[in-house]
């Protein structure tokens, strides 16, 4: 995991049509989804993407606290994204960083369009994402996990939200970046309502040639469609197994 590699070696591997971890350019890391693993929560999901592991819990709809932020027309959505101190190579301080505050906001805004918040005026829906292990793509894994936890909690949704980070490495477009790629290339996290073809999260912070943007987005959408199928499958399996046990 903590494999170090020089830029030259990295480029050489890309030129051979492969990626540092042996994947093809548009190949996702193995995804493992478990639902309903926190008994005291209305919804919960453990979402693993390669070495990245995120646990997400949904509580509510519940009373809005503090009451003055209640909205008479819709529920308030509160999202907190946090990382375990041991989730990274170097210990992360438990105090929320500026990055965690920003990610809580963008994750909230990525989930909000999917939820029928107007069904629960004056209430609050809470989403807590905890990164257990970080190996790139923690915000996208958090969104995938949160959306499934919301569905499992029985909160009415327009669609699931599905998210992936695409990378742009020396002219190549790669899907679902790993941590080495995250360090050496541009990564573009995207979240969508797949059934509506609408984007709910989009960020970037590296040089991206303008004439490749459309290709980058369409590559991301193909990957999102694959993850969306896995999300739906996990939900179905969860409901089938929970009805089988009776009650």
């Amino acid at each position: 995991m903590s494999l170090k590699i020089s830029e030259e070696e990295f480029k050489k591997i890309l030129e051979s049509g492969k990626r540092v971890d042996g994947r093809a350019f548009t190949e996702l890391r193995p995804i493992n989804i478990r639902l309903g693993i926190v008994e005291r929560a209305e919804g919960s999901c453990l979402f693993e993407m390669g070495h990245t592991k995120v646990l997400c819990v949904v509580r509510g709809p519940t009373e809005c606290v503090p009451a003055y932020i209640a909205d008479p027309e819709r529920a308030v959505l509160d999202v907190a994204y946090r990382m375990c101190t041991f989730s990274t190579e170097e210990r992360k301080s438990p105090t929320p960083s500026r990055r965690e505050v920003e990610l809580s906001k963008v994750i909230r805004e990525a989930l909000e369009p999917s939820i029928l918040l107007e069904e629960f005026p004056r209430m609050m829906i809470k989403v807590y994402c905890l990164v257990l292990q970080a190996d790139a793509g923690t915000r996208t894994a958090s969104i995938n996990a949160a959306s499934l936890a919301l569905a499992q909690a029985g909160i009415p949704l327009r669609d699931l939200v599905t998210s992936v980070a695409v990378g742009y490495c020396y002219g190549n477009i790669v899907v679902d970046v790993c941590s080495i790629e995250d360090e050496l290339c541009a990564d573009i996290p995207i979240a969508m309502l797949p059934a509506y073809r609408k984007i709910t999260l989009l960020q970037s912070d590296h040089r991206l040639p303008i004439d490749r943007l459309s290709e980058i987005l369409s590559t991301a959408i193909k990957a999102i469609d694959q993850i969306y199928e896995l999300q739906k499958k996990a939900l179905k399996e969860y409901y089938l197994s929970s009805t089988k046990t009776g009650d």
């Binding site: 963008v106 805004e109 609408k198 984007i199 989009l202 590296h206 991206l208 943007l213």
Partner: peptide, 20 residues
């Protein structure tokens, strides 16, 4: 000629064509 930063902020939904 490069895009160097993108941030979608707010809870609306974005169309790819609007972004481009």
């Amino acid at each position: 000629n490069d895009l160097v930063a993108t941030q979608k902020s707010g809870a609306g939904v974005l169309d790819i064509d609007d972004f481009l």
